[in-house]
Design a protein around this nucleic acid. Sequence first.
DNA 1: ATGCAAATCTGATCCAGATCAACAGTTGCC
DNA 2: GGCAACTGTTGATCTGGATCAGATTTGCAT
Lengths: 238, 238
Amino acid sequence: MEMKVATAVACRDCALYQTAKVLGLETPDCSSLNRVVLRDHPVEKNEVLYREGDSFRYLYLVHSGSCISSATILGRKSQVMGFHLPGELAGIENIGQQKCNHTTRVLEKGSVCQLDFLMLEETLGKDELIRVQSYLLGASAIHARQLQWERSLTGLQTAEQRVAAFLLNLAGRFESHGFPAQKFRLPMSRDAIADYLGLAMETVIRTLKNLHKKELISTQAKNIEILNPTALNALLRS
Amino acid sequence: MEMKVATAVACRDCALYQTAKVLGLETPDCSSLNRVVLRDHPVEKNEVLYREGDSFRYLYLVHSGSCISSATILGRKSQVMGFHLPGELAGIENIGQQKCNHTTRVLEKGSVCQLDFLMLEETLGKDELIRVQSYLLGASAIHARQLQWERSLTGLQTAEQRVAAFLLNLAGRFESHGFPAQKFRLPMSRDAIADYLGLAMETVIRTLKNLHKKELISTQAKNIEILNPTALNALLRS
DNA sequence: ATGCAAATCTGATCCAGATCAACAGTTGCC
DNA sequence: GGCAACTGTTGATCTGGATCAGATTTGCAT
């Protein structure tokens, strides 16, 4: 059977729109807003939003679809650094840097809003600059929290714990953007999950199967249902 | 034989002093500076700088000695999140948060400078606010880079790679603060390294021994000498 | 110096997960 | 519609590192 869930954030819930409002760009005629924000730009699967080494210019808000970031680091050809779900920003990791340090590409086709930083800075008074900086500090803090969460995956010994933590993190993020937390579709391949968690793909597959068998979750291809979040959480504590 | 190395940054090299200068607090009589910065405050081993849940107020610059940060996260009682060497800031991870999300304690006795954020904000004009925010964005970016580096440890398969990466990271940080990169003293226990890297203490010990046997490094208790940085780096690429 | 507690090291065992290999299912493309 | 390429799944094997149990060293306090 097919699971149907909402797949896009409403414009009023879009973080970039909120941002633009906060930044004082929401003039009645939307002229300032439209100079800086490109709304609802469609993107195709595998399209690259920005590449490692590009000079940093845009912040992206995933409106529908999803994205994956990867980076060349510590001598590995490429390591999956994170995923961007509908309602989330991509590119925050570049704040305060000259160049992009991730490559971010589209995982599932959809649309993004794009905020142009160069354009933004051109037309900035002192008060606006203060607001922008405040906002960026907040965004950086949110990003740092997710990074710290990911960093703490290192401390989880078993594959089961890592996969459980991953599913709960996704669930929480979906929920905080207005999607159901119990039932969702994984935007990424098993391979990408494995890379993200530092496991082999086979281990991810077997672990998901095992959690299914234990009736903590239900999996059918990319469709996930979390049946027992409490027990899932308890796994992390053992 | 005893290895002697410098163990404290000079005041003029202290990041907080630089910071204060950048922020325009370096009046001839140091009155503004002294209101906001507590210079060279001695700290004892195991002293807590700030605790998880405390409201965020101070940024610390490790002048001499060293610190360790840990946090309760993902259901673990405590996970080592990072180390703060002489010349480095502690507390940046709290920027943009109300409450501290790490507990940071002194690993080796020494002294710290302390920057009071509350006091700072009280006496801030627009221009100063802009400078402070700029500085904080830069500091956050540096912190995020280290976090990303740590996050990518997840992708390293073997204990040897993780330990090698750890030693090279420490070496680079020592060097960038004016200390020798090849020869230094580990401020932390094997246990803390293990926790930080997500390994068992015994594995860390054996791996260090093994790297010694291969003559890539030389270890004598907490004294480390990196004999072949190139080969050490090459380990990460295999 | 001396002694004691904490930190470090060594050895032995065992198992979770990596790796290899073969195959099935899916998607998209001519 | 059918082939190619990717993605997912299962089974079998093997090894690196966790775990447990001790021995030894280090460094601090007196």
